[in-house]
Design a protein around this nucleic acid. Structure first.
Lengths: 221, 221
DNA sequence: ACCTTTGTCAAGCAATCTCTTGATTAGCAT
DNA sequence: ATGCTAATCAAGAGATTGCTTGACAAAGGT
């Protein structure tokens, strides 16, 4: 049975990563950070918590090493430590979707019924991009688009969509994407577009999954 | 900001998987279960906890869906729900090794100094197996060998090693493997063998990693 | 120098988690 | 039935976690 104390301590060390992922708030933070770096108060706003509380959660992620920080003036920006953390988050989500019994219901409660919504897989979108008969729009906030987006996509933040309808063609299919499979932005965009007579559909995954799959991306542009 | 309550609930759902991995005891359980199914009291023994406490941890893993059970007479056997859970555990370990600062030290405290120990990667072992100039021994308990092992490996449980030395050749390299990169069995085996004049080395990963990589395995034999 | 913005720290309460102990249930054998 | 083994359940003590509040620190602007 060798050294029980040391073994327990080692596994407690692994469990630190589990603990980091063991709070819904921190999970939301990681989900947002998977899109790119963010300041503390943007994050606080994003997860609907006080700055103090958000900061504490971020500190915990920092202690565990899952995020890095960068200071710019009075602001502190947090990012995921590397893309392995992104993969861990994605895999954890997959495992939850597969095995946590309540998850279906929770997802439906948040996302609404997606059955009626046209959607497209990564592979399908890749094919269509090769043919060139679709327009891809990134409906996330501009900062996330700037941090990285699907190559060739246009930035049309959800909040601007109504104003920018005239820029979009009605005779070409428009594919919207956002943060990931559990993000509602693209759903909202597709619903809005369809209501106005556009041919719209939604990419099933978001930007982080696209990038993780090694598919073409670009930054800044 | 759509439905904050539903969004929080959804992410709390993801966090359930994090919570399942947020205890050193449960991490140890998952590590053992990655080798194959086990009964509750075997597991209790393995992690050095009472049966009652072990059972409670297992129940929590069960509620989260990470494990399945099978009853056989008065005994209940637990297994990981599927190989995605194995991958999640492996990835979590990698992230911890990469980012949790204390982990190096904790691993050294448990495993001792491995620098002096001859070791071999999966790729190297594969090459040597193709040439056929090594003998591979599985030093885990027999039940784990029976549940699955590297193709061609012989079962030589660590507890039997001393008694079975005469079965091993001194003029051929012996490669020992066990549960994974943080398991000490193979280390112990290599140290014992080297002390007696055998050419021994250790596979850096264990059986679950070998199987996960799609390399040749066999069961029961 | 002073103020403003942004983020962190510290204390405290409520809620949750972990392990212990002792009782209870399920299946099997006699 | 009775007894035995394996596992689960239930209650409780002690530690840990999550959020709030108010104070403090760091950087920049005026």
């Amino acid at each position: 049975m060798s050294d029980r104390g040391a073994k327990d301590a080692l596994f407690e060390g692994f469990a630190l990563v589990g603990k980091a992922l063991a709070s819904g708030r921190r999970a939301e933070l990681i989900d947002v950070l998977a899109q790119g770096e963010r300041s503390v108060d943007e994050l606080a706003d994003e997860i609907g918590q006080s700055v103090a509380n958000t900061s504490q959660h971020l500190q915990q992620l920092l202690r565990t090493g899952l995020v890095r920080t960068r200071r710019d003036g009075t602001r502190v920006y947090y990012t995921l430590a590397d893309e392995r953390v992104t993969r861990l988050w994605q895999l954890l989500r997959e495992v939850a979707a597969e095995h946590v019994s309540e998850l279906d219901e929770l997802a439906r409660a948040y996302l609404g019924d997606r059955n009626a919504l046209e959607s497209m897989t990564q592979a399908q979108l890749r094919g269509r991009l090769r043919v060139g008969d679709v327009i891809v729009i990134d409906v996330r906030p501009p900062a996330e688009y700037a941090a990285g987006h699907i190559r060739g996509a246009r930035s049309v933040p959800l909040s601007d969509l109504a104003r920018r309808l005239r820029d979009l063609p009605k005779d070409t299919e428009v594919v919207a994407y956002c943060r990931g499979p559990y993000c509602v932005y693209a759903d909202d965009a597709v619903r809005t577009l369809r209501r106005r007579g556009y041919q719209a559909s939604r990419l099933e995954d978001g930007y982080p999954e696209w990038a993780q799959a090694g598919l073409p991306v670009e930054t800044h542009a």
